[in-house]
Amino acid sequence: MEFQNLLIGNKGRIQYIIINRESKLNALNKQTLQELHTALTDAFGNAQVGGVIITGAGTKAFVAGADIAEFVGVDAEGGRTIAQEGQTQVFDIIANGSKPVIAAINGFALGGGLELALACHIRIASDNAKMGLPEVTLGLIPGYGGTQRLTQLVGRGKALEMIMTADMANAAQALQFGLVNHVVTQEELLPKAEEILSKILTRAPLALASAIKAINAANTECVNGYAVEIAEFSNCFGTEDFTEGVAAFLGKTKPVFEGK
């Protein structure tokens, strides 16, 4: 598929998904969300792709938020549809995906942009990054999982403060809060993301998928995370990758995992 608002590139088993609306600070309009759904679904279904790095075009913004112009005239039921479709078709797909996804945050990550980063498994920020959820200044609240995922990462008190004040956090503050995993210079942003993802991709793919599922269960209501962990742990014993990993460990060789 040819995308209008995304750039897709592959570097070995790493796939880049670049939101390419630089003149709009990479804001998420309806078309961009639809394209993200397609790109992510394709990436998770492509055996040649081991993991994904999501970033924004240029240095000013990762994603500066939703395209607010599309909200004009929307009623309560329309708002429900916007949030429901966005969460299920994009943000939840990332968070629950079977492959690791890293957000490389360059510049502003606000509103839906920060929510996009929150859905990713790991976040790396450039030192010029500024992050926040300013929805209350528009008479809204975050609708793409921000109230839930921010709370899980930084705790209830800090999440309430950030959302209710609408204040932005700089990269150093975000690192202190636990909102991002690493802060680097702009020049080091993508190399750092590639370094971490490349290391992850030397591990067993099915085990990575199981780890994501088990960790997500820790924050899923009415799900026993310990039971999910036991189930995923046991499933790993039935994989060829487990046999390969144990044999390589005992034989003091490097394992070659095939995701089987």
Rank of each mutant, 00 (worst) to 15 (best):
N106Q: 15
F108T: 02
L110Y: 10
G111M: 05
G111A: 14
G111I: 01
G111C: 14
G112M: 09
G112L: 07
G113M: 00
L114V: 07
A117D: 09
A117N: 06
L118W: 06
R123A: 15
I124G: 00
S126Q: 01
A129N: 09
K130T: 00
K130I: 00
M131N: 09
G132Q: 06
L133P: 00
P134S: 05
P134G: 05
P134C: 11
E135Y: 15
E135A: 15
E135R: 12
E135T: 08
E135W: 13
T137L: 15
G139H: 02
L140H: 13
I141H: 04
I141G: 14
P142W: 09
P142I: 06
Y144D: 07
Y144I: 03
G145L: 11
G145M: 10
T147K: 12
R149G: 04
R149P: 08
R149L: 14
L150D: 11
L150Q: 09
L150H: 10
L150V: 02
G155V: 04
G155S: 04
R156G: 01
G157I: 07
K158P: 10
K158T: 08
K158G: 00
A159W: 00
A159S: 14
A159D: 06
L160K: 15
E161W: 02
E161S: 14
M162P: 13
M162Q: 13
T165R: 02
T165N: 08
D167W: 09
D167Q: 04
M168R: 15
A169M: 07
A169R: 04
N170I: 02
A171L: 08
A171P: 06
A172T: 03
A172R: 01
A174D: 06
G178P: 00
G178T: 03
V180P: 01
N181S: 05
H182F: 06
V184D: 03
L189H: 07
L190P: 05
L190Y: 01
L190N: 03
P191W: 03
P191Q: 05
K192G: 01
E194I: 02
E195A: 13
I196Q: 00
I196S: 04
I196P: 08
L197D: 04
S198A: 13
S198T: 15
S198L: 06
S198F: 05
K199D: 02
L201M: 10
A204T: 09
A204L: 06
P205N: 13
A207C: 10
A207D: 14
L208K: 13
A209T: 07
S210M: 14
A211T: 14
N216E: 05
N216P: 08
T220K: 14
E221G: 05
C222Q: 12
C222F: 15
N224T: 10
G225P: 14
G225R: 07
A227Q: 14
E229N: 13
E229H: 14
I230R: 10
E232C: 06
F233M: 07
S234Q: 15
N235Y: 05
F237Y: 02
G238D: 12
G238I: 04
G238Q: 02
G238N: 06
